[in-house]
Nucleic acid binder design. Sequence first.
RNA 1: GUGGUUGUAGCUCAGUUGGCAGAGCGCUUGGUUGUGGUCCAAGUGGUCGUGGGUUCAAGUCCCAUCAUCCACCCCA
Length: 420
Amino acid sequence: MKNKIKSVKGTYDLLPSEIYKWQEVENKLRSIFSLYNFLEIRTPIFEKSKLFSRSVGEFTDIVNKEMYSFLDKGKESLTLRPELTASVVRSYIEHNFQQISSIHKIWYYGPLFRQEKPQAGRYRQFYQFGSEIFGSAYPESDVELIDLAYTIYTKLGLKNWTLYINTLGKKENRNKYIEILKESLFPYKDKMCANCKNRFDKNILRLFDCKNSNCKKIMNEYAPLIIDHLSNDEKDYFEEVKSLLDQLNINYEIDPTMVRGLDYYTNMIFEIRSENLGSQDALCGGGRYNNLVEDLGGKFTPAVGFAAGMERLMIAMEKENLFKNESEELDIYIAIMNKNVRNKAMQIVKEIRNNGHSVDMDLQRRSVKAMMREANKKRAKYSIVIGENELQSGEVNIKTMESGKAKTVKIDKINDFLSV
RNA sequence: GUGGUUGUAGCUCAGUUGGCAGAGCGCUUGGUUGUGGUCCAAGUGGUCGUGGGUUCAAGUCCCAUCAUCCACCCCA
């Protein structure tokens, strides 16, 4: 253990023996996104730092203390992306998406970086997938997005989770509500925990998140809920979202105290929480962000989006035993006897591969017994031993590993045999 | 950043009042010439996280440090 270099804190290797699980999930995600006609976007891993302070919010924890920022040679501050919506919106504006089409449905998948203390379901490099709809201010788009997230977890076979929704109202109205909230809570400010006191002025909505029992009690008793302070328009909007969800048989619960850690959300927000994760139980979260495109310098464009954590999903699926306990199968394993047949044998291997079958062969010059053990370990469907006898007769025995039975086939007919 | 947990073989873990570093699994080889899974046998594998200290003697006791996991926090 002395001089070994280890991976950076909060990062991990996805090993060859485990990767099939990720690939299985990734493939399903791709196919579901395409069912909903979302197209993929890939943006750079790093961006200018100000992109995130302007979108995510200067006073959020993400920007305040968790970003991996550095100066490049031109002394410009760059940051490893801590989330992806900002990058997607940047790209949307930069490439004038709104001129190409008035609506865009986009999905993404990739690694993000936040310098947090690692914990169950929380890493410093972690993967998220997510999607955004640009160009619709109607509840249909909120519901299509929620339906997409809902369908993903359903189709992956996950059982123990719940969808929560809430609404934050429009920005102007929310500011009015924040004033009311401040007024009603002010008499109790001194009785709250230090954290809440601090947030009272900076981001008072987060007081709903406090787990301190005393603060909770105060909030329960004296804090007005935003849902009771919506304008008629906002109420109607939220009602429409709910009735569309009902129409699609999407089960949800309303959590009137749910808020979001990123500043850009407006109106409808939602979260899906798993019941068999630890304290990091949010599988995905998102909502409407009608002002972000404009705030980042684009034309006003209403949008909704969500982001979902991959590691948490994998942990939850693992806990529900949703992965088969086996990696990929191999069509055929070829045991090569000695150097006299090596050239010809490798040529045969290449021909079978060219014909579209997966083939592995011995690379270690071991005994036939060892090669057969290898064939078994690699879960080959068939095995062939190639030695001088075979080359002389021009025939090989193709053994079906499961039954142990072998069939004699001419060497130039191997591909025909496999193709049946 | 604040608390707590755990660090012994590739993996999962034993290791008594301080007295020769262990098991199972895995991996390698063999069980008659060139055929796997089960079985049998042998073999491989560890500076006991790292650095100090106490002791005749430390995996075991003490101190420090690093890593890890969990919770707070935050969030996906």
